[in-house]
Simulated scan of single mutants.
Amino acid sequence: MTSAPPKRLPPAEDQAARFAQQREADRTAIAEDYVELIADLLAEEGEARAVDIARRMGVAQPTVAATVSRLQRDGLVETKPYRGLFLTEAGLAVAAAARARHELMVRFLLAVGLDAETAEADAEGLEHHASDKALAAFARFLETRGSEGG
């Protein structure tokens, strides 16, 4: 008698929830990348212009305009005539949280042996897709590792 092959697919509802979570993370990642870049441009250059965002993101200016419009609707970005883009309080909070997640991810990837360039590049995507549980585990790992002398 042959036995049934092991089940490889999770229940449909669980799988659908995971895919929905992934799509939401993708949408959120774009907003976080934009507000983080705007914050960096404001800090480094004193202004954040759409042309600079397009150049640094590697996208066309109409793409930036559409994304900035969505960020304005979401209450994260303000525009001022002839003065570029600015972050609202909510935008500043999103940028700070994104920066903290990015830095945590880089530190974790360095701690597990990645070189700095790869860690920085990989953190750019992973930071948006790691769950809060995973990020907390990474932070605990780093704390434990730090208390053991590295």
Results as ranks from 00 to 15, higher is better:
residue 129 H to P: 07
residue 50 A to K: 14
residue 23 R to L: 07
residue 1 M to R: 15
residue 81 P to S: 06
residue 81 P to T: 05
residue 120 E to T: 11
residue 119 A to F: 14
residue 53 I to M: 10
residue 56 R to D: 15
residue 13 E to Q: 12
residue 95 A to P: 03
residue 1 M to S: 14
residue 116 A to S: 02
residue 7 K to C: 13
residue 142 L to S: 09
residue 89 E to H: 09
residue 148 E to I: 02
residue 129 H to V: 11
residue 101 R to A: 08
residue 10 P to F: 09
residue 114 L to Y: 13
residue 79 T to E: 06
residue 56 R to H: 14
residue 97 A to R: 05
residue 114 L to G: 02
residue 135 L to F: 07
residue 117 E to Q: 06
residue 62 P to E: 08
residue 51 V to H: 05
residue 25 A to V: 05
residue 69 S to I: 00
residue 56 R to S: 13
residue 10 P to H: 02
residue 133 K to T: 14
residue 51 V to E: 12
residue 30 I to E: 03
residue 54 A to R: 02
residue 33 D to T: 01
residue 58 G to Q: 13
residue 20 A to G: 08
residue 5 P to Y: 13
residue 84 G to F: 10
residue 17 A to D: 06
residue 138 F to Q: 15
residue 98 A to F: 01
residue 132 D to W: 01
residue 74 D to I: 01
residue 12 A to H: 08
residue 121 A to N: 13
residue 96 A to D: 03
residue 101 R to Y: 03
residue 83 R to Y: 02
residue 4 A to K: 11
residue 123 A to I: 13
residue 111 A to I: 00
residue 140 R to G: 09
residue 77 V to R: 04
residue 78 E to H: 15
residue 147 S to V: 02
residue 62 P to L: 09
residue 74 D to W: 02
residue 120 E to P: 03
residue 143 E to P: 09
residue 3 S to P: 01
residue 9 L to S: 09
residue 39 A to D: 11
residue 23 R to I: 03
residue 136 A to M: 13
residue 20 A to M: 08
residue 8 R to L: 15
residue 71 L to H: 04
residue 66 A to G: 05
residue 65 A to Q: 04
residue 121 A to R: 15
residue 24 E to K: 05
residue 69 S to M: 08
residue 13 E to L: 12
residue 81 P to M: 06
residue 1 M to K: 13
residue 37 L to D: 10
residue 7 K to W: 08
residue 103 E to C: 07
residue 125 G to K: 00
residue 23 R to H: 02
residue 50 A to L: 02
residue 71 L to N: 04
residue 67 T to G: 06
residue 18 R to C: 07
residue 69 S to Y: 09
residue 7 K to T: 15
residue 59 V to W: 01
residue 43 A to V: 00
residue 125 G to N: 04
residue 93 A to R: 13
residue 59 V to G: 01
residue 147 S to C: 01
residue 14 D to I: 13
residue 27 R to K: 03
residue 139 A to G: 12
residue 96 A to M: 00
residue 52 D to H: 13
residue 17 A to Y: 02
residue 108 F to M: 14
residue 149 G to R: 03
residue 10 P to A: 06
residue 121 A to K: 15
residue 144 T to P: 04
residue 120 E to I: 01
residue 91 G to F: 10
